[in-house]
């Protein structure tokens, strides 16, 4: 499934691939693998708010609140109008 370092793929494409893979694992309740893929996605594109958002959601799913908050905050710093990230962050305030 993985196509590491494929020739001809831009970093954006690689990031996208790992992001999708991360979502796939997330959907299949394989959270650790999801985190691994999303972190990999960030190595290709570290300024992508969507990746941070997805990472935040996975951390939230496994109750790693501090990591979830960090991820949502990072997403918001990259994309301040990201409503979904703000909503998740607000929900976690005080938890």
């Amino acid at each position: 499934m993985k196509k590491e370092q494929d020739k001809g793929q831009t970093p954006e494409e690689m990031a996208r691939e790992h992001l999708e893979l991360g979502k796939f694992y997330f959907l299949n309740v394989r959270y650790e693998e999801a985190i691994e893929q999303l972190k990999k996605a960030l190595t290709f594109q570290k300024d992508n708010a969507d990746i941070y958002f997805s990472l935040g959601v996975v951390y939230e799913a496994i109750n790693q609140v501090a990591d979830a908050k960090d991820s949502f905050e990072k997403a918001l710093s990259l994309q301040p109008d990201m409503k979904s990230a703000q909503e998740h962050l607000d929900k976690l305030v005080g938890v």
Partner: peptide, 14 residues
């Protein structure tokens, strides 16, 4: 229990 979901727009949700 958390139920992972991906919305129509492709966004991860719980």
């Amino acid at each position: 229990r958390k139920k992972p979901k991906i919305s129509k727009e492709g966004v991860s949700e719980i």
